[in-house]
C-alpha cells in the first residue's frame, strides 16, 4: 500500500484538522523542529513537519516550503482562524496527543520499514 497521509493518520492515530482533501499526498521524510527559520532552512519539499507550535505562522512556513503536512503534537489546540488559513493555502494540519519524540519515532519506523 502506498504510504500516503491517510495511511499515516490511521497508523499513528492522528486527527485531521485541515486540508482533508489533500490526504493522498505521499510524504518524503519528516523534520522535527519548533524553530520556524530552522524549518525554512532545513526541511525539504514534501516532508512532514512535527512541531509543538500552533500559531498561524506555521501555515505560511508549510506553504512556502511546500511541505506534505504539519503534525501538531501534545494535543496543542490550533485556533479556527489558523485552520481556515491552512485550508485556503493548501496546508494539511494533523494533530496528535503524543509528544514529538513518540510521533517522530513511529513515523520513522513506518517511513523506513523498520519493525518494532
Amino acid at each position: 500500500m502506498e504510504k500516503n497521509l491517510k495511511f499515516f493518520i490511521k497508523e499513528l492515530g492522528l486527527e485531521c484538522k485541515a486540508g482533508e482533501e489533500l490526504l493522498n499526498r505521499v510524504p518524503k521524510g519528516a523534520y522535527v523542529s519548533d524553530l520556524l527559520s530552522d524549518v525554512i532552512g532545513k526541511a525539504q519539499e514534501d516532508m512532514i513537519w512535527i512541531t509543538t507550535q500552533a500559531h498561524r505562522n506555521i501555515i505560511a512556513v508549510a506553504s512556502l516550503k511546500e511541505l506534505s503536512a504539519i503534525i501538531v503534537v501534545n494535543d496543542r489546540k490550533v485556533d479556527d482562524d489558523v485552520l481556515e488559513s491552512a485550508d485556503s493555502e493548501g496546508v494539511v494540519v494533523l494533530s496528535t496527543k503524543e509528544a514529538a519524540f513518540e510521533t517522530a519515532g513511529k513515523l520513522y519506523c513506518i517511513l523506513y520499514d523498520i519493525d518494532t
Binding site: L35, L36, S37, D38, I40, G41, Q53, N57
Partner: peptide, 15 residues
C-alpha cells in the same frame, strides 16, 4: 517562544 529568533533568518535569505 513563537519559534522565531533562531538566528537563521538572514543566512536563509542569503542562501
Amino acid at each position: 517562544q513563537m519559534g522565531f529568533g533562531a538566528g537563521m533568518g538572514l543566512p536563509n535569505i542569503k542562501r
